[in-house]
Amino acid sequence: MKNMPWREIEKTLRETGRDDVPVRDSDAFWAAFKDRAEGETRNEPAPAPVVLFPAWLKAAACFAVIVTAAALLIPAPSNNSIVDAELSEITAIEVAAAHGEITTDESAEGTIVWVHGLELEDAGPNQIKAFDVAVDHSAVTIMNDESTNSTILWIHGMELK
């Protein structure tokens, strides 16, 4: 057998489906469920809270919170913008076609940029034409997920402090 392309492996997995998963008969399941659910205490919606504070006190508290938050958000002077970059290590990205939105995730051994809903007729590994990264990284992988019409840009081993 020759080396199998991913497309063929995926097709085989999809065709296999969940044939191996036995699902209990519907009537038997719901009869057992109703037996057990009967008399169970349910989590009723929480009642509306009692008003303890007058409106003017709430407004004053909100104002105080906003002022404090604004003060905290003013950045401290820094000589190294990269150290402060955190979620902005990808400084530029150029995509070949119209798309729905771009989301990122930093929790998966690197940074993943997920370009949703690309409107390319001929999907290939070239939807992401250019990008700039703020810090060193070990590798970059670009992959396409045809099933969700998305392109994933995965930047491995970003070394942000």
Partner: peptide, 8 residues
């Protein structure tokens, strides 16, 4: 997270 799903 969804990103972890993609990575995995």
């Amino acid at each position: 997270s969804i990103g972890t799903v993609m990575s995995r």
